[in-house]
């Protein structure tokens, strides 16, 4: 027994990257416990190939529940289906991504099935003596790391921060099974219905899932100048972020805000341009792998957490940097 479960996420029938990151997490835990790794997919008309790819990335069993009302996440329905599966198969651990989906469904579910839930974990391990899950998460604006256990309730549940772990390489020799779970009409719940969907500026990949985020702050001075940030993000293959001051001035929309009252992200590279690095801003980037700053003030707080800093006028530096990246791209 002692199965490790993950909740895979899909959008429009395509599995999201974070589903594979969760499998890598789950695989490590399952191997430590010498147990099985199972993943749950809730959706509509998902291709067999997609389901199989979960096995190639570490799953032993894929539980797939299909119904038109599972196409989009509806918290009440997702929680009903998961409560049923958990009751039926009694997993040891259930992990979901710390996304808008995971952070809605899992707390709703935790209450229904009376167990604990640890939020937004960046590290998971198995405690040797007990086999319990040790769940580590940043809290209080990233100022502390708390390790949390759920000693007496099952499953032990956690949401896991996207990008905090690498997916495993595809291994097409892996085998496993896909279990199709029959839909039970009683799971339907019409209290909340999805009507439509619009993409933010035609930009479908999110800040939380980006490997590279280039952020601009008040140092950009004017809305027009914010284009420099967009161009730099583009040429590095990254996404655009912003400080609160930049968002409040309307240079970027709120979904781009990074920090305590915006998003918490863990990209491989965070490039902060004209951002001072106030504690509230840093709260959103504490777990970034590398931080680079471009700032005219050598005493700016952002330098305290940066790995590399160019100290100078961003308006002189960025055009040169863009030119350099442009030629490098051409040589590729």
């Amino acid at each position: 027994m002692n199965e490790i479960w993950t909740l895979s996420e899909q959008h429009g029938g395509k599995l999201k990257d974070v589903s594979f990151e969760l499998l890598a997490r789950g695989r490590a835990l399952a191997d430590t416990l010498q147990s099985q790794l199972c993943t749950v997919v809730l959706g509509n008309k998902i291709d067999d190939k997609e389901l199989e790819s979960l096995i190639f990335h570490g799953a032993d069993t894929v539980f797939y529940v299909e119904n038109p009302c599972l196409g989009d996440m509806v918290c009440e329905i997702y929680a009903m289906v998961l409560a049923y599966l958990v009751g039926e198969y009694t997993p040891h651990v259930l992990l979901a991504a710390a996304t808008t989906t995971g952070r809605s469904v899992l707390p709703y579910l935790a209450v229904k099935i009376h167990t604990g839930l640890t939020a937004d974990c960046t590290d998971l391990a198995i405690e040797k003596e007990t086999g319990n899950l040790l769940q580590t998460r940043p809290a209080i604006g990233g100022n502390i790391m708390a390790t949390i256990k759920t000693p007496n309730h099952r499953p032990q549940m956690a949401t896991v921060r996207p990008k905090s772990y690498k997916a495993l390489a595809e291994d097409r020799s892996r085998s496993g099974k896909v279990v199709r779970v029959a839909w039970n009409p009683e799971w339907n719940d019409t209290r909340v219905q999805v009507l439509s969907y619009r993409e933010e500026c035609g930009n479908s990949s999110s800040l939380e899932e980006a490997d590279i985020v280039v952020s601009g702050g008040k140092g950009l001075k004017k809305r027009e100048n914010f284009r420099l940030i967009e161009e730099l993000a583009d040429s590095l293959g990254g996404q655009v972020g912003a400080s609160r001051d930049a968002v409040d001035r309307g240079w970027a929309s709120y979904p781009h805000q990074v920090g305590l009252s915006g998003k918490t992200i863990s990209p491989k590279l965070y490039l902060a341009v004209g951002i001072s690095g106030a504690v509230q801003h840093l709260a959103g980037i504490k777990t970034a792998e590398y931080i680079v700053a471009i700032n005219s003030d050598e005493h700016a707080n952002i330098l305290q957490v940066a790995d590399f800093a160019l100290v100078g006028d961003l308006f002189a530096i960025l055009p040169q940097l863009l030119r350099r990246l442009g030629t490098q791209g051409g040589e590729k």
Partner: peptide, 8 residues
């Protein structure tokens, strides 16, 4: 993450 969803 990817945009805005309208619900009733």
């Amino acid at each position: 993450e990817e945009g805005y969803q309208k619900v009733k």
